[in-house]
Design a protein around this nucleic acid. Structure first.
Lengths: 338, 338
DNA sequence: TTGTAAGCGTTATCAC
DNA sequence: GTGATAACGCTTACAA
């Protein structure tokens, strides 16, 4: 059932019917009602493709995140989906798998899809230049990994503060030697390291380069096992006091618990663990994991809100872009509090 | 840069250029090359909307799952995305939130989007009639929750066998009283209960209705806490032997570990726990969680493969639909083996 | 081998 | 208030 067919049945022209269905002021209420009634009756559904082709807007937003299987990122996507649903947009998503070529591929693919805007959490080592170029073609909003020099809206969390809180918490629990687990080349990591350092400084503790365990995303698990085991063996012998461990991503933090357990290291007695992690399973961990929780869904939600805003009035001043920084919260559990 | 403009620059007609770019046999190699070169030069990108409008195919697949934030379901989606990417399809996804109205809304929304096909993991209490009606309009493939009377491809796992294995494992570990945690009204649950019963039967153990703790999805966590606490208090007193616990979903299984820990119940000494769970964090659980692992990504991948197959030759015989049942595997860890 | 013309289902402009 | 017409950018008979 097309507009034309509907028009014929009504004895009206296609354009009149179109206007009626779009509630145009030009059309009389009588006609509108007649049109709507028959449209309902025949279950008329406009062809969105044709509509989009004509209007130039598709009501579709593209989302690019590194990994969908990462619970934190899928929470962002869930929030984004909710917001999209609320504002009547559709979501097409892509995964960059922390791979710069895949990211550019996906960006390219999205641009070819007549989407109205893009939300992206750039992959490790992402190319700012390329992003900038895209952002000139189509509205773009950064989410979570917002540490890029781009003129656009950015929605993230206060990573520095989150790390500061976590570090301070470990110090409060009496730990003076605090290892930090991080993934190489993810923007947010830097801020977290800064927070970590500042907390150390504020407590008159030395920062030691060797305390930073930095692994590549790809072989994160294996690298983590090797490096952590190695460093712990050394440090636990060297010191005769318990130490702290700060994980800067879900995977690393949760993974470290398993490793420590396998090594027979007591948590928190020997090593207190706290980390960024958005998992609901924190209470079921061994032991219950103290976490820095980030409002992931909210980030995704606000990112879409901002993007939609951007889509609706595209001609904003450059100076007018917002960077929204949400708060993360520390939830202490048994992995730091004995 | 449109096809027309490109044609003008080349001194050719739009149709010739279109054919050249689509590698039509009608066009000479010379012309093809010239066209391609200039297209590259001007970075010509075809307008997919126009193409879809004309051809009637959008190369887009809709996916509906209950919750994106459920790691198991997001793994299905990840696999689906991978397959879609490989076969050059785009994915639009929706969440039903285990809500039948939201599911029908989403189905409706997808149908209006000129998608080429749908993959769905129906929500609890989903309406078969409605699904059937949709499946007549557009190719549809069921994934994971395949226990519906629909003439279409279905990709799932052998839930009965998975539950059988898990139950047998608990029995092998010396447990004769085995509680089962389940969510109401999810199709897969039934099969899992059947597997559980069969394993009991095969070992000459009585099935007891009271051993089944069935909670609603919405208040799963709260209900679980109440019911599990209650039943355990009763049973642990009544028996003087250790018992078993079988969780039929990620959330329930993982959640139960936290609850048991809070109750001060020793796992596996007092209660051995095993459950369906696809989490990578199993090793970090308290204690490391024995799991029935399902090939979630593979399910998603194959679902898209099947759907694409269906899209390509729509006129298949009814009798010709496949139901693919993948194997799940049991990974014993400390929560059952002391 | 290439070009012409019609059409996919809408919306927008302008005339009536 | 309503309708004719063109246009969005592409594909595809069919004609040349």
């Amino acid at each position: 059932m097309t507009l034309k067919e509907l028009a014929q049945k009504l004895g009206l022209s296609a354009s009149t019917v179109s206007k009626a269905l779009n509630d145009s002021y030009e059309i009389s209420n009588d006609t509108k009602q007649r049109v709507r009634d028959l449209a309902d009756m025949y279950k008329y559904k406009p062809n969105i493709l044709a509509k989009s082709l004509k209007t130039g807007r598709s009501n579709t937003i593209g989302v690019i995140i590194p990994y969908l299987s990462n619970p934190f990122q899928s929470q962002i996507l869930e929030g984004a989906h909710q917001a999209a649903y609320d504002s009547n947009y559709k979501l097409i998503f892509m995964q960059s798998r922390e791979n710069i070529e895949l990211e550019q591929d996906s960006l390219q693919a999205l641009c070819m899809q007549n989407i109205d805007g893009i939300i992206i959490s750039p992959c490790a080592n992402s190319c700012v230049k390329y992003l900038k170029q895209i952002s000139l073609q189509v509205p773009l909003v950064l989410v979570d990994r917002i540490d890029y020099d781009l003129d656009t809206h950015k929605i993230g969390v206060d990573n520095e503060k989150g790390a500061y809180l976590a570090t301070q918490h470990l110090i409060d629990m009496g730990r003076k030697d605090i290892l930090l687990l991080s993934v190489q080349n993810i923007g947010v990591t830097n801020k977290r390291i800064v927070g970590y350092k500042k907390a150390l400084l504020a407590n008159y503790l030395d920062f030691k380069e060797e305390y930073i365990i930095s692994v590549e995303y790809e072989q994160a698990k294996d690298n983590l096992i090797t490096n952590l085991t190695h460093l712990l063996a050394k440090k636990l012998n060297e010191f005769n006091h318990p130490i702290g461990l700060l994980g800067t991503t879900d995977t690393l933090t949760v993974g470290s618990l398993g490793i420590l357990s396998n090594l027979g290291v007591a948590v928190p007695e020997q090593v207190a663990v706290v980390g960024f992690a958005n998992t609901e399973a924190a209470d079921s961990m061994n032991p219950a994991l103290s976490t820095v929780v980030q409002p992931a869904k909210q980030m995704g939600y606000q990112a879409v809100e901002k993007l939609v805003e951007l889509i609706h009035h595209r001609k904003r001043l450059h100076a007018d872009f917002d960077t929204i920084v949400l708060e993360s919260t520390l939830v202490p559990r048994k992995s730091t509090v004995s």
